[in-house]
């Protein structure tokens, strides 16, 4: 949709698309459908050669005389299956577990020079406090967001996003060969933080508040979890005209 607005205002555009069925409906001017999992628009992290193949193919669409152009990138990346591992004995306390992972997290940040942690604005050295906040939220207690423009649930969601980012980066440092689904499987099945965060999710999902239920869906979902938004959709609520 963005591409259409840009093109209509006199710019030439080319886009990477991750969902062919939607792109067929939206009809942007030039799209390269890349059959890669969501989150991997350029295909492979730390593989400049592969990323350049994607970009070269995308930019070649600029030379087409007429459109719309929707072409498929020839290489497909199917989401990796994460092995389901038996639950081992978990550390008893998520906050203790977080402290134990700090050394790996700090090394990841030192190696990469960046971190995805930061949405709450709470420094990671203070994350034990965020863990306690989430535990209170999971237990049904009221919590307060630090600023009035954020709801408590949205703040809890950012806290989950930050802590997950911390755990994921610590794990990537410890096991560099693991892919995203494998890291997720570890987080949800073998850590103490995973089940605690799942209880945060459960409280949100049972809230009866559509917005809070949607926030929960971004935290965790089983493969057979229906999108919570579906129960709020009626045939007339599904708009296909973008309006």
């Amino acid at each position: 949709m963005l591409a259409r607005v840009f093109e209509a205002s006199g710019l030439s555009s080319v886009q990477i698309s991750l969902l062919r069925e939607h792109t067929e409906k939206i009809r942007p001017p030039r799209a390269l459908f890349c059959p890669f999992p969501f989150g991997l628009a350029l295909g492979k992290p730390n593989d400049p050669e592969f990323q350049h193949r994607v970009l070269d193919h995308a930019f070649s669409l600029l030379e087409r005389p007429s459109g719309p152009v929707l072409e498929d990138f020839p290489e497909e990346i199917v989401p990796a299956d994460a092995p389901v591992t038996p639950a081992e004995e978990r550390p008893p306390d998520p906050a203790f577990e977080l402290t134990a992972l700090r050394g790996y997290y700090d090394r990841f940040v030192a190696h990469h020079g960046r971190t995805a942690v930061g949405l709450t604005g709470v420094p990671s050295t203070r994350f034990r406090g965020l863990v306690r906040l989430l535990e209170r939220y999971a237990a049904g207690e009221e919590i307060e967001a630090p600023t009035p423009d954020l709801s408590a649930a949205q703040y809890a969601r950012f806290a989950c996003d930050d802590i997950k980012a911390f755990f994921r980066e610590a794990r990537m440092e410890q096991y560099p060969a693991e892919n995203g689904p494998q890291i997720d499987a570890w987080f949800w099945q073998q850590t103490a933080m995973g089940p605690m965060m799942r209880r945060v999710r459960d409280r949100m999902l049972a809230s009866g508040d559509r917005q809070v239920e949607m926030l929960s869906y971004g935290i965790y979902r089983e493969p057979d979890t229906p999108n919570p938004e579906w129960k709020y959709l009626t045939p007339t609520a599904v708009k296909t005209d973008g309006g």
Binding site: L40, K44, N46
Partner: peptide, 23 residues
């Protein structure tokens, strides 16, 4: 930073390499 942080996609890619999404 990325505040689009849903469980609906694999964040490990952009955490390893910003270019995975933003080249």
């Amino acid at each position: 930073l990325q505040s689009h942080a849903s469980a609906g996609f694999d964040r490990s890619g952009i955490q390893r390499d910003l270019n995975t999404t933003y080249p």
